[in-house]
Amino acid sequence: MTERAVRLGRRVSRSARPHMSALRKRETKAGYAFLVPWLIGFFGLTLGPMLMSLYLAFTRYDLFSPPQWVGFANFVRLFTADKVFLRSASVTLQYVAFGTPIKLMAALAVALMLNRIRRGSGFFRSAFYAPSLIGASVSIAIVWRAMFSTNGPVDTALSFFGINIGGWVGKVNLAVPMMILLGVWQFGAPMVIFLAGLKQIPQELYEAAEMDGAGVVAQFRHVTVPMLSGVIFFNLLLEIVHAFQVFGSVFIISNGTGSPGGRLNFITLYLYKRGFADGQMGYASAIAWLVVVVVAVIAAVLFKSSGRWVHYYGEDR
């Protein structure tokens, strides 16, 4: 048995070396053959457009006539002469900065609760997940606007507790909170991910902590959070990117106007209006690249800091 194996092994190893590069070549050919659709998509519909957008950002382009190079004029206008843009950037950043943490904290809190109960978690999980599937739809935007109008369900409920502020839809100071609530309402998706992450944490860690005298809060701080840190990081980054992309909801709720007072004129809506309604596609491209830069900076910061607070299971052992 062994003799035969050794003989085979020798034959294989003798012939293996010159075939290594040929194998690799074959694999590479096969790989790219399978990858052709994705490659076309990546270069043609993602990377290519990104570069085109970068070019357009320095031009004045209305789709009818060829683009005219204007250098940094678009960016100068954005920062010095465009109050609407500044308002748009402000409300979008407010939405991202406040909405994302609240949404993720809600997701984590509910995941922790679901992780504790024995029965019924499946039902609750489904119930909480449903909004994630429909939250960004036109239907829900219509519903949300109706719910937050004067004498709507929210107004009625708050009046019950003596808070009589009327409808949120037209109020300058309540428009962004209303959108944050819509975002938070869709906490189900990150919650499901957190739940899956929680279930992966080995019980022994909790038991060990308990034996060391750690209470519930300490266990959370020293076991749960570190073990979940990878998932938290991933969710955080994904949610931030998605938060910047909100469009349909603000479009429908504000009837395409971004009012009241531009508070619902989130950056995607503003970009759409400038590019497609006003026909200023160069200007809109400049806005787009500003968003990319901001997201890239945030991502870079997160990645950099992740070294300090993100642990991957298996690394500490």
Binding site: P49, L56, V241, L271, M281
Partner: peptide
């Protein structure tokens, strides 16, 4: 993680 803004207009063009 690429924001969709930067793809919309060129794709439309």
């Amino acid at each position: 993680f690429v924001p969709v803004h930067v793809l919309i207009i060129p794709q439309y063009v």
